[in-house]
Design a protein around this nucleic acid. Structure first.
Lengths: 282, 282
DNA sequence: CTACATTATGAAATAAAATTTCATTTTTTC
DNA sequence: GAAAAAATGAAATTTTATTTCATAATGTAG
């Protein structure tokens, strides 16, 4: 999608003169969107038709259309590019990079999610007799968070981050129960086993994981949350945040399905916390 | 910044014909970026110079420049605008809205963060004798996650989501200990008390909260995480995700400060998990 | 190494699009 | 209700982009 990346990719399929154009554009894309075709041609020391041909090779209608695409790519301040933290980064630099990578991962995760699967999951959740969330490590936190949310809905919900409890709970599950198993890698043996146990006992198993993992194979529905491979280099970072956003989506879907009367209930839960807080002055 | 919002804002300062142009654009902005000035004029039943004047009134150089701005506004799917989930939204719609709001909140949170405070916090964390993370409710999850991360660094770290344990831990704290107290509202009485107790016992208290809250007043350093007011309407959503991103930032700062040898250690921790997982085939 | 074919390139012509100028219409103000 | 001010569009002009076509560069087969 991003035209700057596309230029970089196709750099070797371009002719010599066209590459000159590409280089000028990559060097300063923000200047280019305010240049005419003549100005750009001059800058790259080539002729105007070459610029035009360059644009068409990138599947745009012509120069103005190309500029439009370029403008769009620049609009989001290169968030797609996953900027890596560097040894010598200042606090400001690594802060920015982490926030940006996280946002980029959320964007990716959103694209990998299938709205139909979300819809079906919400269906199942609203009809469930019991909802269980299972995760380990960083995904345990996501399961914990999910419980915190669904608990407010006044439905039977549990979460376990202990292998044995998960197994016991899975074995005791039955038709009408929904078990949500969360694992970024989808390869954690004990969790895959738990998913299988739940399935064997006729529970509906929803997986929050990456596409095509062993865990995915055990699930009735897989909610795909793909994030950039190497954002989670030393420890889970973007993956768990994307999973949490998905929990928000499921919780929101749940409340929408239940109708407005139900949402008044949520307000009550929130209001019940008031006495434990200091008043807001304004 | 966003030109679509700008058009909406200035709608009443526009002349009759110019408003016609505005309406056509607002009705279908994505069509407009592929139309010539003549096509747009015809569509709005006005003349070409009127379109041109319209563009200039919005502080653009002319029609092509206007289209560039419009294209940029469309590029990020209006993420700045916090799109509210609506009663009748489809799964796809509310999924998109939640992801977008989350990203917008991260952007906001990043801006509200002070890199100096991050830097000082990392300083203190690397020198701490003991690190404690305290939170309740949704913030308990953030504290839990923080423990999960800092635990890998092989430093003394604890987390409590139980009021009594928090109090006891705070009372037992001493100089050289760092206590991180997490609360979006910053108004949870027991947490403010815990922060105060820790302070009284000479621990360094870092708050992860909103600006100017009672909790903020008890802290040595406040890591400000402001998110859009109403993303957390019925339950904490964006706020906790922004807090988690901040935990990532602190953890990253910590590893950077500790140098490359330390990072090999992290790899070992990660590798130690390998036997519990199914092999990746590719 | 040459002759032929293919591809790449730019000058000039053409076409398209946007802008300016200016006369006319509409609206406002007194 | 007349003069001034503002809004509007037709036509001319200017700017910008595209096409055509001749030439140059590169590659290929003999």
């Amino acid at each position: 999608m991003n035209i700057l990346e596309k230029i970089t990719n196709e750099l070797d399929t371009l002719s010599k003169s066209e590459r000159k154009v590409a280089e000028v554009i990559l060097a300063s894309p923000s200047t280019v969107i305010h240049s005419s075709i003549a100005a750009l041609a001059k800058q790259a020391n080539i002729s105007e038709p070459t610029v035009n041909r360059f644009c068409r090779r990138l599947d745009t209608k012509g120069y103005p259309d190309f500029k439009l695409h370029l403008a769009q790519s620049l609009a989001n301040g290169t968030p797609y590019v996953n900027r890596h933290v560097d040894e010598n980064d200042s606090a400001e630099e690594y802060t920015d990079k982490i926030f940006e990578s996280t946002m980029a991962s959320l964007e990716l995760a959103r694209k990998s999610l299938d709205a139909n699967d979300v819809n079906r999951s919400v269906d199942l959740l609203t009809q469930a007799n019991k909802i269980s969330f299972f995760g380990l490590g960083a995904s345990a936190i996501v399961a914990h968070d999910a419980q915190n949310k669904f608990f407010r809905f006044n439905v039977p919900v549990v979460y376990f981050d202990d292998i044995l409890m998960q197994r016991m709970s899975a074995i005791n599950s039955r038709q009408g129960d929904v078990v949500i198993v969360i694992s970024h890698t989808g390869r954690t043996k004990s969790l895959v086993e738990v998913a299988n146990l739940a399935k064997e006992n006729d529970a509906t198993v929803i997986g929050i994981t990456t596409k095509g993992t062993p865990l995915a194979k055990e699930c009735s529905i897989v909610l795909t949350v793909d994030v950039c491979e190497d954002t989670d280099l030393y420890m889970p970072m973007s993956s768990r945040i994307a999973q949490l956003a998905l929990i928000d989506v499921l919780a929101t879907g749940f409340t929408l399905r239940r109708g407005s009367k139900f949402r008044d209930n949520l307000k009550k839960v929130k209001d019940s916390l008031r006495s434990s807080r200091f008043e807001k002055k304004d």
